[in-house]
Nucleic acid binder design. Structure first.
Lengths: 131, 131
DNA sequence: CAGAATCCTTAACGATACTG
DNA sequence: CAGTATCGTTAAGGATTCTG
């Protein structure tokens, strides 16, 4: 191994081509999927409950989000043919397995938030300086 | 506690308001940040090396991405005033601490990809059915 | 209540050209 | 090489209205 700069060692997660990470990232990337999964990790929710819990999500986006999660097999959608319609969403086993990772991200986020904010302040302060 | 449906138990990760998860998610959400972090986890990279390694990223987006990562304190940018300019990017300790989580996501992704694809095929097949 | 449909605004992204 | 600047496209998301 020559010293100095990069020799491009074995990629941590082969991302030479898109071998799957992107698929998951695209689902985690959108604004609401993770938040919904996190909420559902606490238990079964009806549509309106979800919307209140996530706070900020429009009804349209919540619909789209749960549909995509359902399509990916992360949540189940159960319709009860009652007089006011009642639909319950629940995490599948697959969905629950993701919860641990999401929890990890949340923990990391909370733990390192001060550092990140400090770095941002430092950067922004530097940027304001003319010379 | 009444039985039946949801009583909204304690949130897994308090997301009543946005208490930090979103900040991290927004950085994970964009198309390239994670890929760049993953590449840098393998070692120091120059700008062009990164662009080749990530494959698909435009020079503009790579610039924006590394700038944001630098602002957040996840990577360092070192300029060597050589005759052709040479800039090296490297993960900070903070950046490295994120690597574990990203690796976890990648592993999960690879492990459960078949399940997700199967679920999608099933969903799409069902959707095509007229009745 | 749960949702489908429509319209509209924004910003993420990509391609190209130019610079130190 | 490592950017910056500009432009055009597209997709994500929000607001609103209507329906079973």
């Amino acid at each position: 191994m020559s010293p100095g700069h990069t020799e491009i060692t074995a990629p941590v997660v082969s991302c030479d081509d898109d071998c799957g990470i992107r698929d998951v990232l695209d689902r985690l990337g959108d604004k609401w999927s993770v938040l919904v999964v996190v909420q559902l990790a606490a238990g079964v929710h009806r549509f309106k409950e979800l919307q209140r819990a996530v706070d900020g999500v429009s009804q349209r986006m919540l619909t789209l989000t749960v549909r995509r999660l359902e399509r990916d097999g992360l949540v189940t959608r159960t319709v009860h043919p009652t007089v006011p319609p009642q639909v319950e969403y629940e995490l599948t086993a697959l969905g629950h397995s993701l919860t641990h990772l999401v929890k990890g991200l949340a923990d990391w986020s909370l733990a390192h938030r001060p550092q990140i904010e400090a770095a941002r302040r430092a950067w922004d302060a530097k940027a304001d300086m003319p010379s």
